[in-house]
């Protein structure tokens, strides 16, 4: 065996090495900037770092303090509300639009880009638009009043209890079209003969979708869920642009919490520990998903 390997000519051996050489810069970058940095941040979360990183090991104190902060609890609760509503509404709207668009709709070519374009916008732009649109003084409420509907009230964005729902509205506006596209692709991938067979079996449209089409869209549901869930945990820009985390702390999310504790409140250790918890949340969703996806391909 060794004899044969030694006999390989220079060119063959070179050709075996080049691919690995080509891959190595990217690999090194990922290992250092992603996994090295994750390790570093995890380490920091066990130190007493304040404004600058310090390397004194203080155990899980940061985590204990973190979970004792009402500010963090607000952020976590908000994330729970935001993520679940965001995922549910994006999925429902995306699925409904996709099924409706799949009914040989005239003007589909016009509608599809209209549904999709918000995806191309920055969350900062989305936030700017919705911030003002929802502002009771000059936006929707004011317009309704001018149109004579004096009792109309929509002041959620200024309301501590309701402000988080405005973040949901703006986020759903931005992403639901993308989810629609995912479902539409799934629908177009279903074999038409299957649908014809079901109709010959006497299935109504309702049953056709409930019993056959929607179960077949399982992969699209899974992809949509994974993408939306990880976007929800990472949400930062939109809150900054729409509410700035306010009123008060009413719309703080873990992402904004991490940023303010690390860079403005000089509690880097606590900031790091909150980042670790965000990472763990995403890993709990992504790792099983990626693992099964990569398995399937083999």
């Amino acid at each position: 065996m060794a004899d044969v390997a030694r006999a390989a000519d220079f060119r063959t051996r070179l050709q075996q090495w080049i691919p690995k050489l080509v891959l190595s810069p990217s690999l090194a970058a990922i290992l250092f900037f992603v996994y090295g940095f994750i390790f570093f941040t995890v380490y920091l979360s066990f130190t007493g770092s304040k404004m600058l990183p310090r390397y004194d090991w203080i155990g899980i104190e940061n985590y204990v303090r973190l979970w004792g902060l009402s500010h963090w609890w607000t952020a976590i609760t908000n994330l729970g509300i935001f993520a679940s509503l965001y995922i549910i509404f994006c999925t429902l709207i995306g699925l409904a639009l996709a099924i409706f668009l799949d009914q040989k709709i005239r003007g589909e070519g016009m509608l599809r880009p209209i549904y999709l374009y918000p995806m191309a916008l920055s969350f900062i732009v989305t936030g700017t638009a919705w911030k003002w649109f929802l502002d009771p003084g000059i936006g929707l409420e004011q317009t309704m009043h001018l149109w004579g509907w004096e009792s109309f009230e929509f002041g959620w964005i200024k309301d501590r209890d309701m402000a988080i729902y405005t973040v949901v509205i703006a986020a759903v506006w931005q992403t639901s079209g993308f989810v629609m596209a995912m479902f539409l692709a799934g629908l177009r991938g279903i074999d038409n003969e299957l649908l014809k067979a079901a109709q010959i079996d006497g299935a109504s449209n309702w049953n056709l979708y409930r019993r056959i089409v929607i179960p077949l869209l399982r992969p699209a549901f899974l992809s949509a869920f994974v993408i939306l869930a990880h976007l929800a945990v990472k949400s930062y820009d939109l809150v900054i642009a729409l509410t700035g985390g306010g009123p008060g702390r009413a719309t703080e999310l873990p992402a904004t919490f991490m940023y303010s504790y690390t860079f403005t409140r000089n509690s880097m250790g606590i900031g790091a520990s909150s980042a670790v918890i965000m990472l763990m949340t995403i890993a709990a969703i992504m790792v099983p998903y990626l693992y099964s996806e990569l398995r399937e391909r083999k």
């Binding site: 891959l23 990217s26 690999l27 990922i30 290992l31 900037f33 992603v34 996994y35 090295g36 940095f37 994750i38 570093f40 941040t41 920091l44 990183p53 990880h230 945990v233 990472k234 930062y236 873990p254 992402a255 991490m258 940023y259 690390t262 880097m268 900031g271 790091a272 909150s274 980042a275 670790v276 965000m278 990472l279 995403i282 890993a283 992504m286 790792v287 990626l290 693992y291 990569l294 083999k298």
Partner: peptide, 22 residues
């Protein structure tokens, strides 16, 4: 396959985890 898995996971990390060391 493992290398690809590592690269793929890096797409989805919350970037807060790399802000400080970066």
């Amino acid at each position: 396959g493992i290398l690809f898995g590592l690269m793929l996971f890096s797409c989805f990390i919350p970037f807060q985890i790399v802000l400080i060391p970066m």
